[in-house]
Simulated assay, not measured.
Amino acid sequence: MRILIASDKFKGSATGSEVAAALADGIREVIPDAVIEAVPVADGGEGTVDAALAAGFEAITATVTGPTGEPVEARFAARFGEGRAEAIIEMAVASGLDVLPDGEKAPLTATSRGTGELIAAALDRGCTTIVLGVGGSANTDGGAGMLQALGVSLRTADGEVAPGGAALADLTSVDVSGLDPRIAGASIVLASDVDNPLLGDRGAAAVFAPQKGASADDVAVLEAGLSRLAHLLEAQPGVRPSAGDPGAGAAGGVGYAALAVLRASREPGIDVVQRLTGLAARVASVDLVITGEGSLDDQSLGGKTPLGVAAAARAAGVPVVAVCGRSTLSPADAEAAGFRAVYPLSEIEPDPAVSIANAKPLLVRVGARIASESLTR
């Protein structure tokens, strides 16, 4: 039996590669001669660079400004050859919640500057195609820090604006004429499955800032700052009005800055990763596909990794099953999404804390169960 495992991370428990390894151990307990291939996948957030490296990209490390100003060692993936150079940048490694010192959130002052510095580092290496994978960000600064790192001036009455979204309400002027000229010659892709606009009830502050530690009062402050930033930026020549565009609210508004100033195009992250890994061709050559992520829920149906993998399997006529920490999907929803079966770890271990701490041995047991049931179908 030929089996392809293409799983996203189980956040806080296991990387996509670790999920695949544990499932493979369980499968081989039942089918020792199974031919198992693992393909790391992601949806543009954490794990996107790992997927690119597994596809043959080169890892490049740069020291950048972390979300609260501390230096962070961050890597991106690059591929050179055939007259082109392409970079895959994962915002989370430079400006993400996971790199906050001691995990202490800073909803009003966290900056996306490090992400801009990674883009500059990719340009320094000659990359003219840059995929910006967003997700897991610590900031709600509308991409202000990213733009500053790339030469855009954002000023208040007292000088250059301070880091973070709260300070943006005091902006008095914006000047994009200093934007790194290499941006004009680069093709930038915003890899995101988020379709939220920048402002309003579905915007970056209202929907995502509370996950980054913002109180209700903080959300109001951040909304005012994002609104001021958009108002001033969109009065600048060459800036594309994008505050209402799908994806502008991604990553605390970094999506907006990318669309409006860097003139990025938006593409679902899973589509980008599938293209990098050649997933469609790999799926077509196997008998069973296993995909998964930590939580399989309504948000997953909006285009998260498992749905993208399921779509590729369905197009190839190959059955696909999903593994997850927990699932809130009804059997009908799971079937409509293309899954032949769903295997939540919560069926084995109902305590979420225990499941998170012991995901790998639980995944081994699930792998054995999938193998046993696949033989009877």
Rank of each mutant, 00 (worst) to 15 (best):
M1L: 09
M1Q: 02
D8P: 14
K9V: 05
K11P: 05
G12H: 11
S17R: 09
A22C: 03
L23N: 06
D25Q: 15
R28I: 02
R28C: 05
V30N: 06
A34K: 08
V35D: 15
A38S: 15
V41T: 09
V41C: 10
V41Y: 11
D43Q: 03
G45T: 05
G45W: 07
A51W: 10
L53T: 05
A55M: 07
G56A: 11
I60D: 01
A62H: 04
V72C: 00
A74P: 01
A74I: 04
A77T: 15
A78F: 02
R79Y: 00
F80I: 02
G81M: 14
E82Y: 11
E86Y: 00
E90D: 03
A92I: 07
D98M: 15
D98H: 12
P101H: 13
P107Y: 05
L108G: 06
R113A: 13
G114N: 07
L118D: 06
I119P: 00
A121S: 12
L123S: 01
D124R: 08
R125W: 02
G126F: 08
C127A: 15
T129Y: 03
V134Y: 01
G136I: 09
T140E: 05
G142R: 07
L150M: 08
V152Q: 11
L154R: 02
R155G: 00
V161G: 01
V161D: 00
G164T: 13
L168W: 05
L168G: 08
D170N: 14
T172L: 04
V174M: 08
D175E: 02
G178R: 13
S187T: 14
S187G: 07
S187N: 09
I188V: 15
S192G: 14
D193S: 12
P197Y: 11
L198P: 08
L198I: 09
G203E: 06
A206W: 06
Q211L: 10
K212S: 09
L222H: 12
E223T: 13
A224G: 00
G225C: 13
R228A: 10
L229Y: 04
H231W: 11
P237Q: 13
P237D: 15
P237T: 13
R240H: 12
S242T: 10
G244D: 12
A248F: 02
G249Q: 06
A251F: 10
A251K: 12
G255M: 05
G255W: 04
A257W: 06
E267Q: 14
P268M: 11
L276H: 00
T277Y: 04
G278H: 12
L288P: 05
T291I: 10
G292C: 03
G292N: 03
E293R: 03
G294K: 09
Q299V: 03
Q299Y: 03
S300G: 11
G303N: 08
T305N: 06
V309G: 06
A315V: 04
V320I: 14
V320T: 12
V321G: 14
C324H: 03
C324P: 02
R326F: 04
S327K: 02
D333Q: 15
A336T: 15
A336V: 12
G338R: 02
S346W: 01
E347C: 09
E349H: 05
E349V: 11
D351A: 14
P352V: 13
P352H: 12
I356F: 13
L362K: 04
R365K: 13
V366R: 07
R369I: 07
R369F: 01
A371P: 05
E373K: 09
S374F: 15
T376K: 14
